[in-house]
Amino acid sequence: MVMSGIASATVIDVHAHVRLNATNGAAGRHGPEFGEDADGSPWYRVGNYKLVGVRHKASPFTDPALRLARMDKDGIGFQVLSPSPLTYFHHIDPAEAIAFCRKHNDACAELVRAYPDRLGGLAALPMQDPIAARDELQRAVVELGLWGAATGTEFSNPLHSEALDPLYRAFAELDVPLFLHPAPSGIDGPPGDPNLKRFDLDVIIGFAAQESIAVATLIFGGVFDRHPDLDIWISHGGGGTPMLAGRLAQAARKRPWASEAIRKDGAFEEALTKLWYDAHVTDPSALALLRKWVGDDRIVYGTNFAGWDQPEEGAHGEIAPAWAGNARRLLRKG
Rank of each mutant, 00 (worst) to 15 (best):
M3P: 09
M3N: 10
M3D: 06
G5K: 03
A7R: 13
V11F: 13
V11P: 06
D13F: 04
V14N: 02
V14A: 10
N24H: 15
G25H: 03
A27T: 13
H30D: 11
F34Q: 10
F34M: 15
F34C: 09
D37N: 05
A38Y: 10
W43M: 07
R45L: 07
R45Q: 11
V46C: 14
V46T: 15
Y49R: 10
K50L: 08
L51R: 04
V54M: 09
K57F: 12
K57S: 15
S59M: 09
F61H: 14
F61A: 06
P64F: 05
R70H: 12
D74T: 02
Q79R: 12
L81C: 11
S84M: 08
Y88T: 09
E96K: 04
E96T: 08
A99W: 06
A107W: 05
C108H: 14
Y115F: 15
D117N: 01
D117C: 01
D129K: 01
D129H: 08
P130I: 04
A132D: 02
L137M: 01
E143W: 04
G145E: 06
G145D: 06
L146K: 14
G148V: 05
T153H: 03
E154K: 01
F155Y: 05
F155P: 02
S156L: 02
L159R: 00
E162I: 05
A163G: 07
D165T: 13
P166N: 03
L167Q: 00
R169N: 13
A170M: 06
L174C: 14
V176T: 14
F179Q: 00
H181A: 04
S185K: 01
S185V: 00
G189I: 02
P190N: 00
G192H: 01
P194W: 14
N195T: 14
K197G: 12
F199L: 09
D200P: 09
L201V: 06
D202H: 01
A209Y: 12
A209M: 13
S212K: 02
I213H: 03
V215Y: 07
A216W: 08
V223K: 14
R226P: 13
P228W: 12
L230V: 12
W233S: 09
I234Q: 13
G240M: 11
T241W: 01
L244S: 07
A245C: 02
R247T: 06
A249F: 12
A251L: 15
K254Q: 09
R255E: 14
P256W: 05
W257Y: 15
A261V: 12
K274M: 10
L275M: 10
D283W: 08
A286F: 03
L287N: 05
A288L: 10
V294L: 09
R298W: 00
V300H: 01
N304S: 09
N304H: 08
W308K: 13
Q310S: 15
G314V: 11
A322F: 06
A324E: 03
N326G: 05
A327R: 04
R329D: 04
L330K: 00
K333H: 14
